[in-house]
Design a protein around this nucleic acid. Structure first.
Lengths: 149, 149
DNA sequence: ATCATATAGTGCGAAATCGTATCATATGGA
DNA sequence: TCCATATGATACGATTTCGCACTATATGAT
């Protein structure tokens, strides 16, 4: 069924939105009450990618407005999961470091979520995701390059 | 590079989340100020799928909590874009209808967004999305079936 | 018919999200 | 050096999001 490209994009983004909603709900159900997916995602990024990034780096990585990132970081800091230090290279800026408590929190959350992921994988083979993942990644990179926060 | 299925799922959901964020920002930049993607999405659903659905049907369709849908519908109704009528078949329930103004709004929004979609399609062929779409759809349906609002 | 239970919708309050405006520091050119 | 402009971060306020509790209606068992 030949479709106009715009229709394809609309349908694609609709599915993406619903999947984001579903995965978010799934994650948050396993996080301690009051914590949200973005907060976990930031911690995860700090561990997996790199420590010591600036808030703006993080906002760009997730494509959220920088004010949203400021808020998320403030919450994480209030809970002692990250620390903010002045950026030696730029007086306007800060560097975000994950604390030991933050690492432990992230580890526990990851473990809490794994059974759900395994349950999904049992019904829907991860190999199919592997098949689709490059499309998502490439599209994301392309859209990243078209936008600045 | 062989990965544990959970890692694949994590990576997949991370990309999905970022893409949802990006597409949301792109849409909302073209909507009249103050309107959000969920509001447009509801109107779009009412036109494309069916009129006269109940709020709960809509909440399920997008996998958002029903209280969130109540709020979105209240906003749309306040702007005269949808109408709520009692459900003849169930006294507890309501039916949501799109108004002429709602159709016009949806049409204008769609037109406003099309150039962005076309710009994307010019750089990233929709055929690649078509290739990935079944994976998204199947996964979404599977996850839908595992969850109740 | 009655009553226990389930379901649809909403009010309310807490938190997240994000645009605008603002402040502080950087940077580059005159 | 001085100043115009750009950039990183945040304060603030409006709105969205969503869990909890509540009301009204429906459904099913006795």
């Amino acid at each position: 069924m030949p479709e106009k490209p715009e229709d394809t994009y609309n349908a694609f983004f609709l599915e993406v939105g619903i999947l984001a909603q579903l995965s978010r709900a799934m994650f948050e159900a396993r996080l301690p009450p009051g914590f949200t997916l973005p907060q976990f995602t930031v911690l995860n990024h700090l561990v997996r990618v790199q420590d010591g990034r600036t808030p703006l780096d993080l906002a760009r990585a997730f494509q959220v407005p920088k004010t949203s990132m400021t808020h998320s970081l403030a919450v994480l800091e209030r809970h002692g999961l990250v620390e903010m230090q002045p950026n030696a290279k730029d007086g306007r800026s800060k560097c975000v470091f994950i604390t030991d408590a933050g690492r432990a929190f992230r580890q526990k959350a990851l473990e809490a979520i794994t059974p759900d992921m395994a349950a999904l994988a049992a019904r829907f083979p991860a190999s199919r995701l592997v098949e689709a993942l490059p499309v998502l990644t490439d599209l994301r990179q392309m859209m990243d390059s078209m936008r600045d926060v």
